[in-house]
């Protein structure tokens, strides 16, 4: 993970002093590592990323919430073919329609995303790199919001965007060949990505968002608190900091994945 001091240089005074996710009114005690990782993501969300500005990133986060209230998404979910239906999404922000559509699709109808649709994004104004970063924001946002909803807690207010330009950083080793988008190879990473794979080993789920390395780092950080750090996944019995054992965790994981019709 990038060092905290790197981020601090770019925080506004308000953001530096604002406490996110303090859960002071929560009926349940929330683990400190969860608060820390959620707060860390919130701070990174507000900053310029690789392909989106801070304002855009917060707008994407906001759109991930409106997806759940979108009438067009409800109709599309029921449609036999999600690509045959035309309409307009419920949206209350400045994102272009292609981006809003991508956000809503990932939240509400992800199993029917296809290579052809992803391939069509650039001609509709959304680069593949921007799509990957957008997806990274959406999935992290969604998992934080879902945690709150699961516990009956209010959603956290979104952070205020921080100014600045995206870096347009694209890892040189990213290549097509797996999935819908270019990804980094499992072996032989060099340069800034040399230590990207946790424990030096990879899998397709780790490679998925690797076109935008910071997007991978974001979900790894959240996963280490919500589930387990990748380095600890070899322990199939019980993690000492968790109140549920691995069998219990995997039953939950498998049932959620099955309902979402996830083959992976």
């Amino acid at each position: 993970m990038p060092k905290e001091s790197h981020y601090c240089q770019r925080y506004s005074f308000r953001q530096m002093t604002m406490a996110f996710f303090n859960y002071s009114n929560a009926p349940f005690s929330i683990r400190e590592d969860i608060k820390k990782e959620f707060s860390g993501f919130w701070r990174r969300l507000a900053q310029p990323g690789s392909w989106w500005s801070g304002a855009d990133r917060v707008a994407i986060a906001k759109a991930s919430r409106s997806a759940l209230l979108c009438d067009f998404c409800t109709d599309r979910k029921l449609a036999l073919s999600p690509y045959a239906l035309t309409g307009k999404h419920t949206s209350d922000n400045s994102l272009k329609e292609t981006a809003v559509d991508a956000v809503h699709r990932i939240v509400t109808d992800q199993t029917r995303i296809t290579q052809a649709w992803v391939d069509s994004l650039p001609e509709n104004g959304l680069s593949i790199e921007a799509y990957v970063e957008l997806a990274g924001i959406v999935v992290c946002m969604f998992s934080i919001d879902e945690f709150h909803r699961a516990l009956g807690l209010d959603l956290e207010d979104l952070p205020e965007p921080i100014g600045g330009n995206p870096s347009h950083y694209r890892p040189a080793q990213a290549e097509f060949g797996t999935g819908f988008v270019p990804m980094l190879p499992k072996e032989g990473l060099t340069g800034p990505e040399e230590s990207l794979w946790p424990g030096g080993r990879s899998a397709n789920v780790l490679r998925a968002l690797s076109l935008v390395p910071d997007a991978l780092k974001d979900w790894l950080a959240l996963s280490s608190a919500q589930y387990l750090a990748v380095e600890e996944m070899g322990n199939m019995v019980r993690h000492e900091d968790r109140s549920i054992n691995r069998l219990q965790m995997e039953l939950i994981a498998a049932r959620v994945s099955a309902i979402n019709e996830c083959f992976y």
Binding site: R105, I106, V107, Q115, V138, V139, F180, V256, N260
Partner: peptide
């Protein structure tokens, strides 16, 4: 919540 995220990573990236 974690796996609500993971399934979407897998499917959105194919």
């Amino acid at each position: 919540a974690n796996f609500q995220r993971m399934v979407r990573i897998a499917d959105s990236m194919g």
